[in-house]
Structure formats: structure tokens, C-alpha cells
Design a protein around this nucleic acid. Sequence first.
DNA 1: TGTTTACATTAAGACAACATTAAGATTTCA
DNA 2: TGAAATCTTAATGTTGTCTTAATGTAAACA
Lengths: 226, 226
Amino acid sequence: MKNKDYKILLVDDEADVLDMLEAILTKEKYTVLRIGNGEDALRIAEENKPHLIILDVMMPGLDGIETCKEMKTISSLHKSIIVFLTARGEDFSQIAGFDAGADDYIVKPINPRLLVRRVKALLRRFTYFEDTFDKKIVGDIVIYKEKYMVVHNDEEIILPRKEFELLWLLVSKVNKVFTRHEIFSTIWGQTLSSERTMDVHVRKVREKLKIENIKTVKGVGYKFEV
Amino acid sequence: MKNKDYKILLVDDEADVLDMLEAILTKEKYTVLRIGNGEDALRIAEENKPHLIILDVMMPGLDGIETCKEMKTISSLHKSIIVFLTARGEDFSQIAGFDAGADDYIVKPINPRLLVRRVKALLRRFTYFEDTFDKKIVGDIVIYKEKYMVVHNDEEIILPRKEFELLWLLVSKVNKVFTRHEIFSTIWGQTLSSERTMDVHVRKVREKLKIENIKTVKGVGYKFEV
DNA sequence: TGTTTACATTAAGACAACATTAAGATTTCA
DNA sequence: TGAAATCTTAATGTTGTCTTAATGTAAACA
């Protein structure tokens, strides 16, 4: 697993802290999400299932401790590592932090080299259980959205973006016939000169997955049949 | 599919936990079944095929894990989603739970808002299953617009575009006589040289569906009669 | 009852819609 | 930046759908 495959969520109300953290971590090629308050953080976290969440303790509204507690009740986040960001000397919040279920804390002011090393160490945990991804089982294939990957007959197939999006769309409602227009507007967004582009992508998916599930409905569109 | 169409089975030995869950979920209009132990839960589940089953891990007699494993062997329940109810910190049961085939878990104490959100998210899976399609039942045929498909006597019939559109039009107002002109302009858009084209399509639909419902009204047009 | 009009039936050819392939343009990533 | 992968285009092949036209049948009318 490469750095860019790790998602790190930064939560802080101070934009310059976020800027700094983001700068350091994107330089290391991590995928960084940032948000300015606890409420939004909960939503974003649930949607994105970050591997690591860096939470500032002191925030207006929902503070770090509360946000952390809430996060711990969200089962899809049970594998996410939560780290507090705290000003030096805030002993109390460190203890309350561990109570709330945090895994570690980082002291401000931030030392870039230390931060990177710490993040790296924490993320190493994920090496042990790779399987933290959403999967969707349709017919005899398994689709991993975050990995853009499909497993069929124990074979792992990585699909390029467009091909994967196409498959994902069709599979989002199995047996439904998606019109060519629906597909175009969802995946290409109307502007496309050649009508054939879509056919080619359909072909690629059929070919790579070696499945017969994608059916053509002439004059209408395509469907994924089970 | 509306909330009341979803059946949720609650299994816990503590009545007050059941009370709380039931209160939250019935407020959201879900159809709720409750039961106090694993043995009965198996029977009730098999009889009712709930969409979602919330199982307390710690129960006297058959515990949650065992109940879950048993449920997984009942084929009529293989579409049911199973969620564990677990006290915070019961790490082991979480892992054993996933081993047993659970889809998610919920941590006590229960946060009503989170519970509702979670349940909603989990039930969304049923989007993938058959019965979420809009169907129109006319006479003894069932028409699935999204699938471009008609079912008659357990036989699935796929109609080509024009034929399906014709059927769909007639069926859009059962017993109404659509004039030939109406039909032409709706499906062909005025320009068509041969008057016979329509007859041929009507014939194809009658033939493929093996129904007598499409009646000719001489000098006027056609109707779908029930 | 014959004649007309309107639709039914059939089969074959025209056509539109999609499949396929390969090559060129573009993006991505080391 | 250059190689590799992805995406798009274009040219050509294939197939099922649609249309046409020729002929048959039933109701309506005189």
C-alpha cells in the first residue's frame, strides 16, 4: 500500500494549522482531507473512512473529545486511527483524550519531521489488516470501490477510472437498464463527440472481467443482469 | 420502498434495550419485531424474513454470535442484514462477530440519531435486490419499465424498444382507446410512410406476450383492455 | 351477397444501432 | 520529461430491429 492510498482527515478550526499539516502530508503523497469543525468532520469521516484522523482538541462547537467519542460509535470508523492535536502542557485533555478512545496525540507547535514519522508509524498498523475497504458483492464478482478493483474467480482486476465508474453505475441498480443518455451524462457529462466511446468502454469491462452479465438493450442502453 | 415495508427484528434479553430500540425505530415507521432470546429469534426470523436483524452479543442461552452463525445457515435469510449490539470496548466480540458473518455492529449506549442513520444506510443495500423496482401490474402481466421487461406466467420477456414503448403507452391508460394518430405521433413522431408499420408492432407484442388484452377498435385505434 | 374498407399476417430487405479493432491523442506517474 | 497506461476517435463488421410490400381476412355497408 502506497502513501497515496492512505486517507488522512485533518480537523481544526484554525486554517493556518490545517495549511501546515496539509503541506507536510501532501508532500509525503498522503491523500489529505481537511475540515474546519467537528460536526462536518463526522459526516466527512463516515463518507470517506479515513485511515487516520487528526483532531484538534480545542474547537468551537463540537470539540475534539466529543467528536472523537461520536466517531467511536460509528462502526465503519472502527479501524480509523484517531490522533489528538493539543497544545503543549494540556495534560488534562491528553488524558480525557485517551478516555475518549484516541490512539495517540501530537503536541503543538508541530515539528514536521516528527509528524511524518509519527503518522508513518501509526499507519503501519494498516499493513496488518489490509481489508479495511468497502466491498459490494454482485453475482459472482466482488467490487472494491476505493481500490477501483474487482475480484472474479480469485483474480484481482484493477479497472481504470472510466471503466470502473461504468461498472459501478450499472451495478448501482442491478437489472435496471440505464439509457445511453443516462450513462453519458453520469460518466462523461454530455460533452462527447463519438457515440462509440461508450461501446469501447463496455467492451473493455466485459473483456477484462470475463463476465456475461452486462447486457445490451438495443435502442435503449445497457444493464448489469444477475 | 417505504420504511414501513422494511422489517427489523430486534433480539435482546434486556427488555429496556428492546424498548428503546423499538421506540426509535417505530418512530421512523419501520416494522419492528422483538424477541428476548436467540432460540426464538431463529424461529421468528425464518418465519418473517426480516430485512435487518439487530442481535445483542451477550445473551443467556444462545448468544449473539451463535445465533448469527445459525442464521447464516438458513438460506431464506441469506439476504437479511445482521448487526450486532455490543458494549463499548468489547473488541473481541466485534471480531468474532464479523467472523460469524455480521455486516456491522452498533455500540451501546445507543445514540438514537446515529442508530437511525446507520439503519437507513444498511437498508439501502436492498436497492440491489429485485423488489425495489417499480412495477405495473395490468391484467396478468407485470411490466418493469426500468428493466424494459414484461413478466407473464413466470416468463420474462424482453421487448425491443418500439414494441415496449407501444405497450407502455397503451398500458399508461388501461381501457382507453388510443387513436392510430396518437400512437403514431407518440412513438414514431408523425413521419412514417407505411400505415402498416404499427399493425406489425401490435402483432409482435400480442405474439410475444401471448395475451388477448390488446384490442383493435376499427376505424379508431387500439386499447389495452382488462 | 358482393364490394369496400380497415386491419392482420407474413416474409424479406433496409437500416440503425451496436461490436470490434486498431491507431492516434491524451493523461498519468515515476 | 518520457514511457506507459488510459481515453478517444475513426473505420469497418455484425446483428437485431424496423419497415416495407404483397397478400389474406373480417367487419361494414349498400
